[in-house]
Design a protein around this nucleic acid. Sequence first.
DNA 1: AGCCAGATTTTCT
DNA 2: GAAAATCTGGCTA
Length: 207
Amino acid sequence: MPQKTPRANKSLRPLRRKDLPIDTESLARYLIGKTLVRETPQGRMTGRIVETEAYVQGDAAGHGYKGETPRNRSLFLERGHAYVYFIYGMHFALNVSGGEKGEGTGVLIRALEPIEGIAQMEKNRRTKNPHELTKGPGRLAQALKIDKQEDGIDLCKKGPLYLAEPQIPTAEIGVSKRIGITKEADRPLRFHEKGNKHTSGPKHLNQ
DNA sequence: AGCCAGATTTTCT
DNA sequence: GAAAATCTGGCTA
């Protein structure tokens, strides 16, 4: 079951780019349960991805909808690269670029279940509440010390930030509307692991 | 547990 | 100049 304490330090093999679904919606679903690995000079932090949102082709809510700009250029890289943006004057959020190269679609990572390096996350977040560490895009970026420096990183190879194979099996995946946007918000493009305590958003969206 | 307002700055119009 | 893929604290119950 998802809430069982996952064993730390199993092999952390990066995901292969060819295994990432090209379709962005499929990618968002595929990423649930995968491991996000953050290497810093202070040590390693890892977490299971438990909540994602897809921003697909022709989607007015997508940052790449109106074409490439200096801000969103990493979203147009080949799939599996990091797109980090700054929002509301104080938060960073992490996306995985999706689709074909130049497409400008991607997947927002909305929540993690912390596994390794929890002490360091508590320090970065200045809280000890395990449920407030990585629940929500801004919080997880702060916990893992992710900012513009990580923008454009290849997440399919070992480095300061990458995606890796799951460490424990993934439970059933639920689908809901997206959170925090005004355009096309009702499209069912948000994915989450059912029953996981580390997902963000109101309860009725997590069933 | 749920609702609301305020914070704060980048980005593009 | 306005909007923005959010979080926090303070309120009500």
